[in-house]
Design a protein around this nucleic acid. Sequence first.
DNA 1: AATGAATGAGGTTTCATTCAT
DNA 2: GATGAATGAAACCTCATTCAT
Lengths: 192, 192, 192, 192
Amino acid sequence: MSQSEKTKGKLIRSAKKIFSEKGFWDTKVSDIVKDAGVAQGTFYLYFKSKDEIFKELVLEIRNHIIEIIDKYKNADENIIKTLIDLKSEILEYLYQNKEIARIFLFQLFTKEELMQIYFETLNYIEDFDKNLIQKGVAKGVIKYPDVENIINIILGYGRRLFETEVLLKGKPLDEVKKIQKEGIQIIFKGIS
Amino acid sequence: MSQSEKTKGKLIRSAKKIFSEKGFWDTKVSDIVKDAGVAQGTFYLYFKSKDEIFKELVLEIRNHIIEIIDKYKNADENIIKTLIDLKSEILEYLYQNKEIARIFLFQLFTKEELMQIYFETLNYIEDFDKNLIQKGVAKGVIKYPDVENIINIILGYGRRLFETEVLLKGKPLDEVKKIQKEGIQIIFKGIS
Amino acid sequence: MSQSEKTKGKLIRSAKKIFSEKGFWDTKVSDIVKDAGVAQGTFYLYFKSKDEIFKELVLEIRNHIIEIIDKYKNADENIIKTLIDLKSEILEYLYQNKEIARIFLFQLFTKEELMQIYFETLNYIEDFDKNLIQKGVAKGVIKYPDVENIINIILGYGRRLFETEVLLKGKPLDEVKKIQKEGIQIIFKGIS
Amino acid sequence: MSQSEKTKGKLIRSAKKIFSEKGFWDTKVSDIVKDAGVAQGTFYLYFKSKDEIFKELVLEIRNHIIEIIDKYKNADENIIKTLIDLKSEILEYLYQNKEIARIFLFQLFTKEELMQIYFETLNYIEDFDKNLIQKGVAKGVIKYPDVENIINIILGYGRRLFETEVLLKGKPLDEVKKIQKEGIQIIFKGIS
DNA sequence: AATGAATGAGGTTTCATTCAT
DNA sequence: GATGAATGAAACCTCATTCAT
C-alpha cells in the first residue's frame, strides 16, 4: 500500500468515526485531521471539501447495499427465505460498518443532495421487495393484496431493528439475525 | 393576545417553517427573523439562543405526544382497538403539525441533547405499547411472546407510514388512517 | 448621515487608501477594517466580498469618466479647444481622486473581469476622440488621415502625463493642466 | 545542453506563459510545474521562490532593453532617424517576446520592488531620449523647449502603440513599425 | 537530479450574539 | 418592547515551501 493510500485510509477511518459520533455539522475538518494525525492541509490533498468526503462515505454504503441486492436479483427460491437471507445479509453489512450505517440512517437529512441518495437507496430496496411480494400475491401464497403496505411493515421493521437492537442495545449479530428472522416470519404469517 | 405574545408567536411559526424546510444547521437566526418580520435583536428578547427555540419546539411535540398517550393510560377496552385508536390519534396530531413532526423525525440526530428527547419520547410510547401487548400475552390473545420484537414491528411501521405515506406521498389523513388500521390488524393476525 | 452610511463611508475611504498603496492582492480585508476601525465582520455587512468592494471602486471611476465625456457629447466648438477642455476635466477628476485613479491605472490587469471595465472605459474615450478628430479631417483642418494613430498619440500622452507628472512627480494640478494643453497643441501642430 | 539546463528552460518557458496569461497572483507554482511537466519540488531546485523566478523574468527584459539602448549610445546620425531605429528595435524585441512584455507592462504594479525595476528601465529609456532631444534643441532643429513634455508624448505613444496595435489588435510587426515611424514623424513635425 | 506527499501559516467569510439607541 | 449595527470567534480552504525517499 502506497503512502498516499495509507494517508487517505487514515483520513477516511477518522472521518467515519467522527462523523458517526458528532454528525456532519459538528464535525470539523480539524477534528478529522487531528484524529488521523496529519496536517490540516493534507486533508485537502485527498478530498476537495468536507462535503465531498462525507458524500464519498455515503455513496460507499449505497453502492454496497445495491451490490448485495443485485446478488439476489435472480434468486428463485422460496419467497420468504429469499427475503430473510437478503435482510440478514444487509443487516450483517451494516453491523460490520456501524459507524457508516449510523451516518446513513441519521445524518443525511440535513443536505438535500444526500437525502436523494438515501431515498434512491431505499427505492432500490423497495423495488426488490415489491417484486418479491408481488410474486407471492400472484402465486396466492400472500393473501393481503396491499403490497405497498406490506413493504411499509417490512422496511419499517428493518430500520427499527437496526436502530434499536444493534445501535441502541448493542446486541450481538447472531441474536439480531435470529430476531429478524422471527419478525419476518410473524409478518408473513399475518399476510398469508 | 398581548403584543409580546403576538411577536413570540410569529417567531415560533417562522422557526417551525424554516427549521422544517432547511434543518437546524442550515437555518440562520436571520432567516427566522426575516420571515417573522422582526429585527434581529428581537429574537433574543424571547429566546436565549437558537438552540433554545429549537428545543422548545421539540419539547412541544414530546409533551403533546405524552398527553395523548396519557389519555389512553386507563383505557380498558379491546387491546387492538386501543392500539389502533392511539396510533390514529398520534398520526392525526403529527399530520396536523407536519413541520414540527418533520423536525422531530429528521433533525434531532445532530445534537446529543435532543436525541435524548427523541428517545425519551419513544420510550414513553414503547412503555405504553409494551404494557398493552403484555396484557394480550397474559390473556392468551397474543401467542408470539417476544414483546420487544412486536414493539419493533409496530413502532417501525408507524414511523415508516408517516414518513412515506404522509410526508413523501402526501396522502390525505383519512386514507393513511385506514392504511394504518389495516397494517396493525395484519400485524396482530401474525402474532395471534 | 446615518450610522450605516458613516461606517460604509469609512470602509470605502480605507479601502481606496490601502488598495491604492498595496494593490488588490496584497490588501487584506483585515487591513481595511483595521484602518477603518471596525470589526472584521462589519466589512461583510456592507460588501459581499473583497472582490465586490474593489469592483465598486472601479465602477465609480468608470461612471464618472463617462459622465464627464457625456457632457461634451454635443459640444460644437473648436475641435482642439473641446479636446483640451475635456482632457483637462478628466485630468482634474483623476487628480482629485488620485488613489482611485491609481487603482484604475495599475490594478485592473490582475482580474479578467476588471480589465474589461478598463477597456470599456478606454473605448468610450476613444470613440469620443475619434469622432472629434474625424470631424477635423473632414473639415480639412487635420491633414494626417490615420485617425487611429492620432488617437494613439493623444491617449498615450494622457496616460503618461498622469502617471509621470501627477503620480510620480506630484506636480500641482494647474501646472499639469498647462503642460497638457501645450502637449495637445504640439500634437495638433504635427497633424495639421 | 545539460539535463539541468533543459529543466530550468522548461520551467522558465512555462512561467512566462502562465504569468503572462494569468498574472502574478493568479499563477500558482503548481500551474507552472504542471505545464512544465516536472514535480512540484523540482521547481525549488532551480528557483528560491515564486517571487524569484518572476523577478528573473522581469530582469531579463530590463537587461535586454538596456542592451539595445546601449547600442545606440554613440549613434551620431540624424536625431529622428536614431529615435525611429531605436524604438523600432525595442518594438521588435517586445514583439518577439510578447508574453514577457505583457508581464512587464501590466504585472509589475503589485510589488513595490518590481515597480522599481519598471521605473528604472523607463528612466534608462527616458535618459537616452532626453539626451537626444536636447541635442535637437541645442541644434535648433527642435523648437519646443519642454524636453520632458516631448518625452511624455513619445514614451506615452510607444507604450500605447504596443498595447493597442500589437497586444490588442494583433497587427503584424512590419505594419506596427510603419505606424510607429509615421507617429514619430508627426510628433517631430509638431515640435519642430 | 527529481519526486510528490506533507506541512501549516494565513487568508476570507459566516453568523450567533450583544448592545447602544 | 423593538431595533439593527456591530462584534469577533471560529470555520473552511489555499498554496508556497520543505523534506524524506
